[in-house]
């Protein structure tokens, strides 16, 4: 297998753009890690989440291409906006693309889906007094 980067600059740009849009839509922070884990992927992904600045409001997408494992980890506050069921649906979307070898497409689609599902409608007229 040839040695090189995991993504081309164009692919990186697409993923970063999807991350940015997801953050704008949800107000949460999104992070994507693609690489191997020395042991179990779930604890490793949780440790990666804890390395970030605001882990409570962060959604981490961890992909292990060699081990063919995907982990979506949501922080304590992010979990309230993005349910485990919604994360599972996004994981299913990504899983389908990854199985065909499309890492970039899976990440872009999955992150977009996570951002859309974590979207919260703005609270309007909350400070106005109730009128009869």
């Amino acid at each position: 297998m040839p040695v090189g980067d995991a993504f081309t600059p164009d692919q990186l740009y697409d993923i970063e753009r999807a991350v940015r849009h997801a953050e704008e839509a949800s107000g949460l922070r999104f992070s994507v890690y693609v690489g191997g884990a020395d042991s179990e992927t779930r604890p490793f992904a949780q440790e990666l989440l804890n390395e970030l600045e605001d882990p409570d409001h962060t959604v981490l997408v961890y992909v292990d291409p060699a081990g063919r494992r995907l982990e979506i980890v949501t922080g304590a506050e992010a979990k309230r906006q993005l349910s485990d069921t919604a994360a599972g649906l996004a994981a299913l979307t990504m899983q389908t693309s990854f199985a065909t070898g499309d890492l970039t497409g899976g990440l872009v689609t999955g992150v977009q889906q996570l951002g859309t599902n974590a979207h919260q409608a703005p609270l309007l007229h909350a400070n106005e007094p109730h009128k009869q």
Partner: peptide
């Protein structure tokens, strides 16, 4: 460039986007 093929070894160093 090289394409990811499930089941074969992964060749690239880790990438952390928005890390």
């Amino acid at each position: 460039g090289p394409r990811y093929r499930p089941g074969l070894s992964w060749w690239a160093p880790p990438v952390w986007i928005n890390g």
